[in-house]
Amino acid sequence: MERFTNETIDTLSLPKFEETVLSPLNINYKKIIYFNLGLTFLILATIIGVVLYFIEESRAYVIPAILAYVVLLLFSIAVNLISFRNRGFAFRDHDVIYKSGAIVLETTIIPYNRVQHVTLHEGFISRKLGLATIEIFTAGGINSDIKVPGVEKEHAEKIKQLLIGKILKQNTINE
């Protein structure tokens, strides 16, 4: 009886996910990006320094090493900034949209009636900044899960409640 038989549906009049206005991540999340970058490159610099100090033959390559390091650093900063600017999320009536990426721009959409569970977690720095990460899981495998970082704690709690409400509502409809 619930067979879908509407043959001539006008696909152009359907709501368009690509036209949804996405909310950007909290600006404070940039600090976390910088912190992570800084930490990674500090460790890398330490390793290079140790190698140069202890292995004498490696000193001939000191200039290429520094050059590569700087190029990698600039590239990482650029990619991370572009990726920050590109990220955005939206919670529509029936699904959640998350957009991310720098070189590859990816948009993932999960309908609420396919959400398995939702988690909220805060890292050490994000707790200091009052931010949280929302993770939305489906049964479609780890690659299909959405992870929205850099959402204000209060906002994130509300989103989580909203999602849980939606999941519960869906379950009662199905039963």
Partner: peptide, 24 residues
């Protein structure tokens, strides 16, 4: 369960992209 579309930035002008459908 989830749908994702992605596009390399140099494919933007050509209007081509890749589709992924995730099922259980």
């Amino acid at each position: 369960h989830a749908i994702s579309v992605h596009q390399y930035f140099w494919h933007k002008g050509l209007d081509i992209g890749i589709l992924n459908l995730y099922t259980a």
